[in-house]
Design a protein around this nucleic acid. Sequence first.
DNA 1: GTCATGCGTGAAAGTTATTTCCGGGATTCG
DNA 2: CGAATCCCGGAAATAACTTTCACGCATGAC
Lengths: 307, 307
Amino acid sequence: MTQSVKEIFSGGDAPPAPAALAAKVRTLAPTMTRSMQLVAEAVAGDPAGCAALTVTGLAELTGTSEATVVRTARLLGYPGYRDLRLALAGLAAQQESGRAPAVTADIAVDDPIADVVAKLAYDEQQTLADTAAGLDTVQLGAVVSAATAARRIDIYGVGASSLVGLDLAQKLLRIGLIAHAHTDPHLAVTNAVQLRPGDVAIAITHSGSTGDAIEPLRVAFDRGATTVAITGRPDAPVSQYADHVLTTSTARESELRPAAMSSRTSQLLVVDCLFIGVAQRTYETAAPALSASYEALAHRHSPRNTR
Amino acid sequence: MTQSVKEIFSGGDAPPAPAALAAKVRTLAPTMTRSMQLVAEAVAGDPAGCAALTVTGLAELTGTSEATVVRTARLLGYPGYRDLRLALAGLAAQQESGRAPAVTADIAVDDPIADVVAKLAYDEQQTLADTAAGLDTVQLGAVVSAATAARRIDIYGVGASSLVGLDLAQKLLRIGLIAHAHTDPHLAVTNAVQLRPGDVAIAITHSGSTGDAIEPLRVAFDRGATTVAITGRPDAPVSQYADHVLTTSTARESELRPAAMSSRTSQLLVVDCLFIGVAQRTYETAAPALSASYEALAHRHSPRNTR
DNA sequence: GTCATGCGTGAAAGTTATTTCCGGGATTCG
DNA sequence: CGAATCCCGGAAATAACTTTCACGCATGAC
């Protein structure tokens, strides 16, 4: 399959020119005849624009003929105009992406929607990278082990963090573990009392000082359960009662972008890693459980309208 | 002189896709027919190689016909194969200069936990980039406008998507909008009946064929509300009843990494963009509302032990 | 079970773009 | 001043790309 593609590449013994096109034009300019220079100039001046033109178009633009355009392309080292055009497109794309990464700015009130999308995506990507880099894999491994062996897993989180807790519980349940996310602080405490050594309790709080998440964790800690804190502040109060602390990244926030947004991204990554870790350990039972739940849902989807 | 170049550019009103090609292929793959998939696969798999091929060449390589190649190019949003090829050349040049080729290795059962973290983070970053690239900002803008002006906003989603819906509702409520996420399909339909023109209904479903999310949207549609679908399958049944469709990226999934995971990342980005868009429009009221809710929560945090 | 319908598909015709060829005309050197 | 050279663009020839059309397969209806 791919070998035929490779053949084509090996066939062309002289790889034309990647980005050194402007330089080549300048070097060869004296060699060129008058009309060729016109073409070369146009090409070097606006690669993107020229890439959009056909031979005829470029000939008209420069006030020359198709033949001259082709001759110029040859002189620049390409087999023909077609290949020059391809290289031009590549060049255009490169310098397009080159000026792109200036999206580090904060999201402003008057940003057009397209900028919002770009900036937000960039920010979240950054958050993910930070989280992955800062995550203690030893701690994570320990939590995975504890969770895999646990009789039951209780998860505490309120506000935005509650959704992350629910997500984790949902996934763990899917592979046959007994997990429950408590969003009501009172019920959380009530349930925490039931825990005993070997059970796992997980508190999710970005600030690390959300009383409603700390309190049930403290109770679980006192009952001898293995306790875990997922927080952006490893030095915050919640860590006092945590056997293991998993740190989420504290990304910059702005007026329009509350901390809840990036902390959620970060928390979800941690939770996903935890889940996959557990799924690996319990693969024998997890895999069938996953496909079983998939099958069970199949009939709730209307028949595909296309194949 | 140069004006003819500009004309050509202004003429093409919708510049197709710069680097979002792989994403587009993945999003549209399910829509495609068998032989189109072959072509799309080849193109996504080896952009540089395919850029060097003519229509006939690519047709032979994939064992299909020229017509199919052209059809695929059209589906991907280009006027014809010529333009796809140009874009391909650009893409090739970009990833040539860009550092990371793509370490898309699947997560394996026996991967050490550190690898899991790295791969997962990378995958999610990819998902974010794909989603941002593939998101129709015009549609998004329209949805933002509708949401800003809406008397009430109802959100439907079940399963993993329900959490995304809850997240959106939570955030919109925070800036003073009347938003409600329904996770119970029966109650959702019951509530959808109450909607009227000017209201907004949003259905979140990755597959686009989840009956429990479609049904309330259909009801809302019939009542004259502005309806929105957030789905990974823009051609799925849910779009029938949607005035606006926001497409999430369909990332690759593996046995250990169910689709729910990456679709959630994608959905959250869309939802975040929507939220920020609305927050921008309603800045006068949103900003104070955000700080007010922050203040209100302050007393629920134990005193910070660090600054 | 049979027929009708629609859709995916590739072969081939048709169109456009690219390359090659050729002769006019300008420049320069003898 | 004349002749040789070579640049240059028009137009034919070729290659690439696009469109059309008809066949065959599958799906659903009767």
